[in-house]
């Protein structure tokens, strides 16, 4: 094929609430990328919805920026609601 692009693939499972990144693939365009994703990543009954996006369209944080990006939140204990008493019947906390 003359030209293919790298795509990232996201699949939502039957009971999943959100799409989960499952891998990547090559395809010449969006339509074929969706079909390739169906054939590569849902052949064992994993999904009911697929997103594909050209990898070049994803803006990603750089490993070089890891410290300035993420380290400052490591010591902000007051950002976690750990100073409250949570009643036993409040779920998901």
């Amino acid at each position: 094929m003359s030209e293919t692009f790298l795509y990232e693939v996201f699949v939502r499972g039957k009971r999943g609430l959100n799409h989960v990144h499952v891998g990547s693939l090559h395809a010449p365009d969006d339509e074929m990328a969706l079909r390739n994703a169906r054939d590569l990543y849902t052949r064992r009954n994993e999904g009911v919805s697929i997103w594909v996006v050209k990898a070049s369209h994803i803006a990603a944080s750089s490993p070089d920026e890891k410290d300035p990006f993420f380290a400052p939140s490591a010591d902000k204990v007051y950002r976690h609601p750990t100073f409250y008493d949570i009643p036993d019947d409040v779920p998901h906390m």
Binding site: V11, G13, R15, G16, V20, H21, V22, N45, E46
Partner: peptide
């Protein structure tokens, strides 16, 4: 969400590799 396939499988079946929902 640590294991993508676990997140995709039904009923949290840890043996997702054997297939679910046939």
């Amino acid at each position: 969400f640590d294991n993508v396939y676990e997140a995709l499988s039904e009923d949290g079946d840890a043996r997702w590799a054997f297939g679910t929902g046939f």
